[in-house]
Amino acid sequence: MTENQENARLTAWVRGRVQGVGFRWWTRARALELGLTGWARNTDDGRVEVVAEGSRVSCVKLLELLRGCDTPGRVDGVVERWSEPRGSLGGFVER
């Protein structure tokens, strides 16, 4: 399997004005378009945590979109962590 075809798990923490602006809904829509599974949830400190599994290429694209200028609200920064997929996620939900 080539690197472009391998599966990955992306966990991203997005900070800025990302709660109460439709950011989780927007993230869900982008993730589903990319064929990813996972979830997005608000954290108590004002960030949004995104967990996505699927092809590494699609996860990288989602990360680029999260860092882009077309998100709802305002993104001040994104921190990511990569890990092996667990395969236990189905669909993509807002938590």
Rank of each mutant, 00 (worst) to 15 (best):
E64G: 12
V51F: 01
S55H: 07
R9M: 14
L66W: 09
L66S: 02
G22Y: 13
R74I: 04
C69H: 10
L65A: 09
W39Q: 12
V79Y: 00
L66T: 02
V75S: 04
L66I: 06
V78C: 05
R30V: 13
E33H: 06
A12I: 08
R15S: 10
R56V: 14
P72H: 08
G68D: 10
V57A: 15
R67T: 01
A52C: 07
V78Q: 03
G54N: 12
E84Y: 00
W13C: 03
L63C: 06
V60A: 08
W13Y: 13
E6N: 04
G73H: 07
G46H: 04
N4P: 00
Q19I: 13
G38L: 04
V14D: 07
Q19K: 09
V60P: 00
D76K: 04
R67Y: 00
E80F: 01
G54F: 05
G46F: 02
P72M: 11
R81N: 09
R47E: 03
V75D: 04
G46R: 03
E64N: 07
G35W: 10
T2R: 11
R28F: 02
L65D: 14
E33Q: 15
A8V: 14
E6C: 04
V48N: 06
V51H: 02
G54Y: 03
V14S: 08
V75C: 09
Q5T: 15
E80M: 02
R17M: 05
T11V: 15
E49F: 03
R56F: 04
V21C: 13
L32I: 15
R30E: 14
A52M: 13
V60C: 03
P72D: 08
V60H: 01
W25F: 15
T27H: 04
G20Q: 07
R15C: 03
T43D: 05
V50S: 09
W13K: 09
L62F: 11
V14G: 07
V60G: 00
V50E: 11
D44R: 04
T43S: 05
N4I: 12
N4T: 10
E80S: 15
V57D: 12
D45N: 13
L36N: 05
E53P: 11
R30I: 10
Q19F: 03
G16Q: 10
W25Q: 14
G38N: 06
E6Y: 00
